[in-house]
């Protein structure tokens, strides 16, 4: 039996994060598989470099370390894209990661682009006067999509593929912005639950402060995922793991000790966000239709750029 890496502790000897036993992974094998995956994706596409948006959180932080380990830090461009309300602490954490890795980085403030849409200080933007009152949800989605647009632009200038940084937990409950933070050329951590992201982050050397802080989409000040969603990640991860990976029925979940109401709520989140995890359907009209009965690997002979 492989040794399960002990969860690192803070100065007071408390664990940095909670790692449910059944979710513990072999981090050496994970790094190995993910490293090969990253190199394979690039090779098959004819690229040698990567671009990612670095928020200062543990997900993008982990991916930065994984990419740097796989292809060398010089081949990774980290783009920091704060909005004016973004947490300065997040930006400081992102800068710490960039310094630690020694990779190229760039700061692109998205404030003017976002404010140009929704307006600012009572002055209407492109969206008209009513957009001054735009909801936090709309603003958050717009910010995520502006960041996506910046990354895909830098994909051209830096000559790198955009690497996804979304984890399995947020993907399954739909806590992502379609064509925003979930847009990417490939995703190395999309099959790891949040608890596993933290475990791997600790193993690869992501700064402890980044691992220990409360996860946040940072779409408005003091927002945290867990307060917004009303759940804790370790519990949510366990519900998803037993329900989806281990195929337990609702009744079996209750027998395992989960609250029925919680499981039902998670199920609704998963079902209602199915569309975010799939390629949009094309109306079937012709003899062969992409994704239906025209089925080719993304990377086939001739698919790599010259």
């Amino acid at each position: 039996m492989s040794a399960v890496a002990a969860v690192p502790t803070d100065e007071a000897g408390r664990p940095l994060f909670e790692l449910p036993e059944e979710l513990a992974i072999d981090t050496d094998v994970a790094r190995r598989v993910i490293g090969g995956f990253i190199r394979g994706q690039l090779q098959q596409a004819g690229f040698e470099r990567c671009v990612l948006g670095l928020s200062g959180g543990v997900d993008s932080g982990l991916v930065a370390y994984l990419v740097a380990e796989a292809i060398g830090p010089a081949n990774l461009l980290c783009v920091l894209m704060p909005y004016r309300t973004s947490s300065p602490a997040s930006r400081a954490d992102a800068e710490t990661i960039v310094d630690d890795l020694g990779c190229p980085s760039e700061l692109v403030e998205i404030t003017p682009m976002v404010d140009a849409m929704f307006g600012r200080d009572g002055v209407a933007g492109a969206g008209g006067a009513s957009d001054l009152e735009a909801s936090a949800l709309r603003r958050g989605n717009f910010m995520a999509r502006i960041r996506m647009a910046v990354l895909y632009d830098r994909s051209v200038t830096f000559g790198g593929l955009v690497v996804g940084t979304g984890n399995k937990t947020e993907s399954l409950i739909g806590y992502t912005t379609l064509f925003g933070d979930n847009a990417c050329a490939f995703n190395p951590i999309g099959d790891l639950y949040k608890s596993q992201v933290r475990q791997l982050a600790a193993a690869i050397g992501v700064p402890r402060a980044v691992i220990a802080k409360a996860p946040s989409a940072d779409l408005w000040p003091d927002q945290t995922d867990e307060s917004e969603g009303g759940f804790s990640y370790p519990l949510l991860d366990r519900v998803l793991y037993w329900r989806i990976d281990r195929r337990r029925s609702l009744d079996e979940m209750v027998e395992l000790g989960f609250e029925r109401a919680l499981v039902e709520r998670v199920e609704r989140l998963v079902a209602v966000s199915e569309f975010k995890r799939q390629v949009p359907p094309i109306a079937k009209l012709g003899p062969r239709t992409a994704g239906v009965d025209y089925l080719y690997p993304r990377r086939r002979p001739g698919s790599a750029r010259d």
Partner: peptide
Amino acid sequence: PGRDLAATNEAGL
């Protein structure tokens, strides 16, 4: 295809 990284696997996979 390799799958299942659970730490309890003897061969790590």
